[in-house]
Design a protein around this nucleic acid. Structure first.
Length: 334
DNA sequence: CGAATTTGACCAGCGC
DNA sequence: GCGCTGGTCAAATTCG
């Protein structure tokens, strides 16, 4: 194993754990392992369970975020994608090591155990990492056995194993976020097939594993409920969709696509790339209901039309983005 | 009847 | 090396 994970871990994407109330830590890293970090105080409104200055993205669809060239999947846009009203109040992006952790300390759960994911949580965390390091052998197994020759009808797994050991696979970027939702599996417009379920240590709730059903799309997601707050669903996406959103959408997904705001969403917005979910989160409350409502909002509710660029402009004008993520404004792909 | 889900088994990685 | 855990497979079952 390379030392990369350790290094990453040392950077501690969960650093927000250490800074207590009113502090947030953002960590990003690209494939080159560069990392940006910035800590900035945020105003928290416990009653509304939201961070002021963090508003659900009404302008960007979840599916859009999941799809396409967006470097860091914008899953936070999932706000409102759930069949029932839900809120994403924390996002975590990282790699296996960061998210998966060390024994007995579930990465995600673990983070929440250190800083209780209470409804009045005062932290919001984003961290991104898309490492290049070896991926889990299981994934290799999956892609290889499915893909090809390995699969001779001989279940000679020993041989396969050796092949697998040699071959490395690039790690897919991961993105985790927590959502207040009654349902585990949030509708995001894509079609998923459940391929596994496991009991999670220290949690009464199982973790479900889903895979995108679209051919050749390797995106997966894990869904689990926080053991500390059963109303919180933790969803971890892995990979990026290489296909458009399936046409046949139901329920909210349909609503989402028919939402003029979403339709106007500039998929191609700024090419590279401030994670849209952050943009979304950092948007000041355009809708006063969000700012003062205090209740779980339905993010699909009609809202004033605001274009992405306008929102960005707003942020720029207020210096929010630069202040929070100066480096991201100049971030270049390697 | 095909698609999706369930569920027990299997495997690899990691810490001790 | 062993045991624990997460992740995946795949047969069986359920669903539409």
């Amino acid at each position: 194993m390379s030392s990369e994970p350790k290094d990453l871990y040392n950077h501690d994407p969960f650093q927000y754990d250490r800074y207590g109330l009113g502090t947030t830590s953002f960590s990003f890293s690209s494939n080159t392992s560069s990392m940006y970090e910035h800590k900035s105080p945020l105003v928290v409104d416990p009653s509304s369970q939201t961070l002021h200055g963090f508003t659900p993205p009404s302008y960007m669809s979840f599916t859009e975020c999941l799809h396409g060239p967006v470097e860091y999947n914008t899953l936070a846009s999932a706000f409102g994608m759930s069949p029932s009203s839900s809120e994403v109040f924390s996002c975590i992006e990282g790699d296996n090591k960061t998210l998966e952790t060390t024994r007995g300390h579930d990465p995600i759960i673990g983070s929440t155990s250190e800083v209780p994911v209470s409804t009045n949580s005062s932290e919001s965390s984003f961290s991104t990492e898309a490492g290049n390091e070896e991926y889990s052998s299981k994934s290799k197994k999956e892609s290889e056995t499915k893909g090809c020759e390995d699969g001779d009808d001989h279940p000679n797994k020993k041989v396969n194993k050796q092949k697998k050991k040699v071959e490395k696979r690039q790690r897919e970027p991961r993105f985790a976020f927590m959502t207040k939702s009654e349902v585990d599996h949030l509708e995001d417009g894509y079609r998923w097939r459940k391929y596994g379920q496991k009991a999670v240590k220290n949690s009464p709730f199982p973790r479900s594993y889903y895979r995108c059903t679209t051919q050749k799309c390797t995106v997966k997601k894990r869904v689990e409920r926080s053991f500390q707050d059963s109303s919180t669903v933790i969803t971890t996406y892995e990979g990026q969709h290489n296909h458009p959103v399936p046409v046949t959408l139901r329920g909210n997904a349909t609503a989402m696509l028919s939402n003029p705001m979403l339709a106007a969403t500039p998929l191609a917005a700024p090419p590279q790339r401030f994670p849209p979910e952050l943009l979304a989160h950092m948007m000041p409350p355009m809708n006063t209901q969000h700012a003062s409502g205090g209740t779980s909002s339905n993010f699909f509710a009609p809202q004033p039309t605001i274009h992405f660029q306008q929102q960005q402009q707003y942020l720029n004008d207020h210096g929010l983005l630069q202040d929070l993520f100066p480096s991201l404004f100049f971030k270049q792909e390697p």
